[in-house]
């Protein structure tokens, strides 16, 4: 009896949470109060992590100092992939339940994901020059990451291509969902096609092949870039909420209150 009651309570509280997630004023308010402390913490954490990786770790015994790019390359690539899950999930929710805030999350996620993918590709190219002797190679990992960039940019462009916003979000959601095929290819590319890009150094099971003095700043940066992604999502969702809710009473009140 007790378990059934608690399941009921959990189900209703989850339902009310989803209900709130769909409410623009609530989302706007809660993101504002989260950002007030999360954004400064994230900026400080990023500054600490960047300085740590850039100046305070020892160089790699084989690659020398060029390896320091790992502290931005790997976190950017990880978050670029995580952002795609979020975008595809938001697309699915918006497609199935026609939830407006999911649509806004998908729209906000695309340029942010594109930025992180761009960073992963550019820092990878810069790292490749001193390490492999070339800026670019049509390696499976690199090519599939380039496809990821085009998928993000495709969602951005598709949104702009439609005048009818409902049709736009439907088309973008379908593109995002179809593009999910690319994600396991990116993960597995280094094992399936062994070429220049090295396989993963950090493993969930078994030992990682990085020394802990390099692993701690790397984990620090991964956490910081995840936090950065959360901040960016909230910041651009707030803009999209204001854009789409401009004619409602609560946004009008906000506009008159915020500047007076």
């Amino acid at each position: 009896m007790g378990t059934r009651a608690s399941i009921c309570i959990i189900a209703t509280s989850m339902w009310s949470f989803f209900h709130k997630l769909g409410s623009p004023p609530w989302l706007y308010k809660i993101s504002g109060s989260i950002l007030r402390w999360l954004l400064p913490i994230t900026v400080v954490a990023l500054a600490v992590g960047l300085a740590w990786g850039l100046l305070f770790t020892a160089p790699d015994f084989r690659q020398g100092n060029s390896y320091r790019i790992i502290y931005i390359h790997v976190p950017a690539a990880i978050v670029a992939l995580a952002a795609y899950y979020i975008m595809a999930l938001a697309g699915a929710v918006s497609l199935i339940w026609k939830m407006k805030m999911a649509d806004i999350a998908m729209k906000a996620c695309a340029p942010i994901g594109a930025s992180f993918t761009f960073l992963a590709l550019v820092t990878g190219a810069i790292w490749g020059k001193p390490t492999w002797g070339t800026w670019w190679v049509w390696d499976a990992r690199i090519t599939s990451m380039l496809v990821l960039l085009f998928l993000y940019l495709g969602v951005v462009a598709l949104y702009e291509a439609f005048d009818n916003k409902e049709a736009a979000s439907k088309a973008c959601a379908v593109l995002a969902l179809v593009g999910t095929v690319n994600i396991p290819i990116i993960y597995k590319s280094v094992d399936w096609w062994y070429s220049l890009h090295q396989p993963a150094s950090i493993k969930m099971t078994g030992g990682s092949s990085i020394d802990s003095s390099m692993l701690y700043p790397l984990f620090w940066m991964i956490a910081s870039v995840y936090a950065l992604f959360a901040c960016c999502m909230m910041l651009s969702m707030r803009v999209e909420i204001l854009k789409s809710e401009g004619k409602t009473g609560w946004v009008k009140r906000l506009a008159t209150e915020s500047n007076s």
């Binding site: 020398g64 100092n65 001193p130």
Partner: peptide, 12 residues
């Protein structure tokens, strides 16, 4: 950075 400075600093 032992010759890698240009790469590392530009990436950062």
């Amino acid at each position: 950075m032992g010759g890698h400075g240009g790469f590392v600093w530009s990436a950062y």
